[in-house]
Design a protein around this nucleic acid. Structure first.
Lengths: 260, 260
DNA sequence: CCCTATCGTTCAATATATTGAACGGATGGT
DNA sequence: ACCATCCGTTCAATATATTGAACGATAGGG
């Protein structure tokens, strides 16, 4: 179970906090609202321990309990997520540079940040309708398979990859998903050479995505943009042209964030 | 310090989690990124305890540490906030019913949920520009002073108010802010009679807001809308007309959520 | 240049959290 | 209607987290 090993790993501090995070992750990931006993079972927790945690989490606004006892994520993390988004100013900059400028009107453009070995979606400009940030906030996918994730991982020191995937490489989402850390390393070398990343059907077959990192005032990659098209549209000319445009757009966002 | 009493209250369980939440609240509320020693001091925690908590929170993606040691909120709560927003479907419904329909084009309309004794902003339609959800996500204000907060509190059982403000009534934001729980109760009686709430300069002088609750499929108030205008615009006729429209809009949202 | 103050970090002594066992209640099947 | 199963909850015995004292590093002021 996700996070389960993180709860129990040798030398891990503050187990109550780790368990609470695992509970929230589980509840957020569940399509059906779990009960206290159900999540205790799923996460391998004693019922009385889960009970104490859940009670505290309700008091803190982290979880909400329905009348039938089922549990849902509560409003309190909105405060932290809102601060995270406001602080980095990423979404505002995205809006100005991508969504409102109609720079890539024909394509879906998304922005993500890295969270461990996954990417989290924080902004989206959908070609078919107005800006739809909220739908995507918090959505996550394994970084190795996404264009933004590949761009962000390519910008990280090589040694970081061992730590990010020490507990196992994510299971492939399609038959094109990169299947191992060595194979991912080779892709990242290509990404650095090319200047932008490519996800060719690794998230969904037929979907072709380009990615480029956005740097902050220190130059560090803090987010990445991805542009999506269909595989049939992705001729070498189109890839080169859109890749260049995306890198320029990402550089534009970087400048707006105070980067070089 | 906010949350401080919550950490140490008699019978409080899971102190490590409460402390972690207090740390996140502090970091989210700080305009300057605090250091480990600074937040230990601010929250009355032993440095070694704060150190252990912060290290775990970094590992969990709850906090991010800059090169100079300063701390910021991390990306992980996005997952939970995103689930919370997606699950209730509130923002999507808001978008369709308010933002896209241009129902209240000349006014700012916001939507909040209750989190303890505060409201959290989850959507906003600003008269002067396109939908700007992300700017407001997580922003919070004391519920007693806001139009949405008054509407939500009016929909709660009377006895809940004692619990929500057991640890003290919030300090007024302006000279018009309601100053006590008994006075708030009287306002809520008026709110129920009128069918919508009024914030007359309690958040900011000169700002006049109307509020109405949005119910879910069970009929329970899960969010509230507020419409903002200036005090000079707020003649009795305008108040009556806009109040009615807001209640209708809120009922419309309720129907879209499966309510009566 | 030197000294003081504060930082982040470590670890064994001290303080406290966790949880197994048991309970009453609710639900569903026979 | 009754019984079995599972639920949420409680609490004292058991297991473990917390933290004071100390350290090396860093920064700023004299």
């Amino acid at each position: 179970m996700e996070g389960h090993d993180q709860i129990r790993s040798a030398g891990a501090h503050v187990p109550a906090l780790r368990r609470a995070v695992a509970i929230l992750d589980h509840v957020a990931a569940s399509s059906d609202a779990p009960t206290l006993s159900g999540l205790a079972r799923a996460l391998g927790l004693p019922k009385s321990t889960a009970h104490g945690l859940v009670q505290a989490m309700e008091e803190l606004g982290l979880l909400v309990r329905a009348a039938d006892g089922s549990l849902r994520t509560g409003p309190h993390p909105l405060r932290w997520a809102g601060d995270f988004l406001a602080r980095t100013d990423l979404v505002s900059v995205f809006r100005h540079a991508i969504a409102e400028s109609r720079r890539f009107d024909r394509f879906t453009v998304t922005m993500t940040v890295l969270d461990g070995g996954e990417v989290v979606y924080i902004a989206c400009s959908d070609a078919s309708r107005p800006l739809d940030v909220t739908f995507r906030i918090g959505m996550r996918l394994p970084a190795p398979f996404t264009a933004t994730g590949k761009a962000l991982l390519a910008a990280r020191p090589e040694r970081d990859l061992d730590g990010l995937f020490a507990q196992g490489f994510p299971a492939p989402l399609t038959r094109y998903s990169v299947a191992s850390l060595p194979a991912l390393r080779r892709e990242l070398v290509e990404t650095r050479e090319r200047g932008f990343s490519i996800d060719d059907g690794q998230i969904r077959e037929g979907l072709f995505c380009l990615g480029a990192t956005v740097g902050d005032h220190t130059g560090h990659a803090v987010a990445a943009l991805a542009l999506s098209l269909t595989r049939s549209e992705a001729t070498p000319e189109v890839i080169a042209t859109l890749g260049r445009s995306l890198v320029e757009a990402a550089a534009d966002l970087s400048r707006r964030l105070g980067g070089g």
